[in-house]
Nucleic acid binder design. Structure first.
Length: 469
RNA sequence: GGCGACGUACCCAAGCGGUCUAAGGGAGCGGUCUGCAAAACCGCGAUUCAUCGGUUCGAAUCCGAUCGUCGCCUCCA
């Protein structure tokens, strides 16, 4: 059975086949580094990560490129306002992005090209577009893409140009356009841009937003490649414009499969900076949730489905992660010193065939949880051989190579705390239950649960409950 | 105004014409285990899939209408 993905371009579920056998070339729209990314942004980055990890799972080599947008209106405005250089500002938020990504278990691509380091490539592409009569320069030194010159314009988003005219853009840098829907490839320098600008054949200025993705994806992945991902909000106009620029620039078909993930909502509304209803990774963690709970919440429902970020949902996700984590611990115990090179296969096959249906994680997880219950039953009834447990462990790890929610959950406790745990072990042996319970209560107030197992006491972190908010 | 997505138990969610008197997770309740817990396991929990019509031998799944929620059309993951 083959991987099926919903291709926005055709509006249908398609069997995925990479252009080059065994290798997938994938471009994903990365962050605009003008501020701390919010959880909504991570929903998309986590989706890209899921796509990549599952392609790895299937044995593909994945050549992944994600751009860093380090020049745009908001960045420039902020630099000028705070009187910092573009490099300083964007380096700061690029770092935040990378740190957060690591905390969330996102495997960043080997290539994270910055827009500002590819001005030349963009200028070259714009030159081609002007030559091909797909773009024109205005008197003041901006360059616009001529939408009428591309017949297929609107084919991705299914937007009809006639219906667009109702909301005309009024930004002052858009004067001089032949058609209000034409979009900027190059924006002439303005006084409020301060120091920021680059020289070009059309004078000093800066690139339009869309051109960086065309220029950089072509540079690193070639004129035609397999997958391009982004959030649904990029569908129009960004991806539409990217297609127009790229197809007109090369005459090739550009991207084979377009994947778009839906939004993250908070209290039922789209999370966004402009609405002011955004949360950062730190905000979520400060509320007492683990990064893995967030990761699980954002990846466990289907990518084309909206997800509502609430404390209750985060808690629920955290509990599911805990169950997975506890299960792994049980397998490790049951396997003892035995290791296996063979993964238990039925669960892997079932998991994978669910994932092949347009990345149906929900169904994949259902398979996994069924298997967990069955395996736990075997362990409980002592019908689990070390070999079998070891094979199960391999299977779990393979599954987690896609989900990536099983972190090393060993709790760091202080020496004093460790002493208390030891004291309690002694007390328990002496059947001093009141002291045992007292110590357990001390840990509970600190946010830890003590679990007595045949192999000793396990210290677990207690995550937030639904009662608090 | 134009375009689109969605509405399944207390919450999240899969299913996309028959095997559905509908997976899985969380929460809850009852039980086994445990010194007590926790974890694990067992059991309970929607005769019903927003509503109303239609197509069909057969619908949560297809069609239409209605109501509701959300998104895009302007920067946005």
């Amino acid at each position: 059975m083959n991987l099926k993905l919903y291709n926005t371009l055709t509006g249908s579920l398609e069997t995925f086949k990479s252009l080059k056998k065994g290798t997938v070339r994938m471009y994903t729209c990365g962050p605009t580094v003008y501020d701390v990314p919010h959880v909504g942004n991570y929903r998309a980055f986590l989706f890209f990560d899921l796509v990549k990890r599952y392609l790895w799972f299937l044995g593909y080599e994945v050549k992944h490129v994600m751009n860093i947008t380090d020049v745009d209106d908001k960045i420039i405005a902020k630099c000028v306002k705070e009187n910092v250089s573009l490099e300083t500002l964007t380096a700061k938020f690029t770092d935040v992005f990378k740190t957060d990504a690591e905390v969330l278990g996102i495997e960043l691509p080997e290539l994270l090209p910055k827009a500002t380091e590819h001005i030349k490539e963009m200028i070259d592409l714009i030159k081609v577009l002007i030559n091909n009569n797909n773009a024109y320069k205005t008197d003041d030194g901006s360059v616009f893409f001529k939408i009428d010159s591309f017949d297929d314009y609107g084919s991705l988003s299914e937007i009809e140009l006639d219906h667009l005219a109702s909301t005309e853009r009024v930004a002052d840098d858009e004067y001089g356009k032949e058609n209000p829907q034409d979009f900027a490839l190059w924006k002439k320098w303005k006084e409020q841009d301060g120091e920021i600008g680059w020289d070009s054949p059309w004078g000093r200025g800066r690139p339009g937003w869309h051109i960086e993705c065309s220029a950089m994806s072509m540079k690193y992945l070639g004129e035609e490649f397999d997958i391009h991902c982004g959030g649904v909000d990029l569908l129009f106009p960004h991806h539409e414009n990217e297609i127009a620029q790229s197809v007109c620039g090369t005459g090739k078909s550009f991207v084979q499969t377009w994947l778009h993930c839906d939004h993250l909502l908070v209290d039922g509304a789209k999370m966004s900076k402009s609405l002011g209803n955004f949360y950062t990774l730190n905000d979520v963690m400060e509320r007492g949730h683990s990064a893995m709970a967030l990761r699980y919440l954002l990846t466990s429902s289907h990518y084309r489905q909206k997800v509502d970020l609430t404390n209750e949902h985060l808690y629920s996700a955290g509990q599911a992660v805990q169950r997975l984590q506890d299960f792994r611990r049980r397998l490790v115990e049951a396997a003892g010193k035995v290791t296996s090179h063979q993964a238990e296969s039925p669960v892997l096959a079932d998991f994978s065939s669910a994932m092949k249906q347009d990345l149906n994680v929900s169904e994949g997880l259902a398979v996994v949880f069924d298997w967990i219950r069955e395996t736990n039953r075997k362990i409980d009834s002592q019908n689990m051989s070390p070999n079998e447990a070891a094979a199960g462990l391999i299977a779990l790890e393979r599954i987690d190579s896609v989900l990536s929610v099983l972190t090393d959950d060993l709790i760091q406790i202080t020496d004093e705390e460790q002493a208390l745990v030891s004291e309690r072990e002694v007390a328990r042996k002496a059947k001093n239950w009141s002291r045992s319970d007292e110590i357990r209560d001390i840990f509970r107030t600190k946010g830890y649960e003590l679990e007595d197992t045949p192999k000793g006491t396990v210290v677990k972190r207690i995550y937030k409950t639904t009662a608090e908010s």
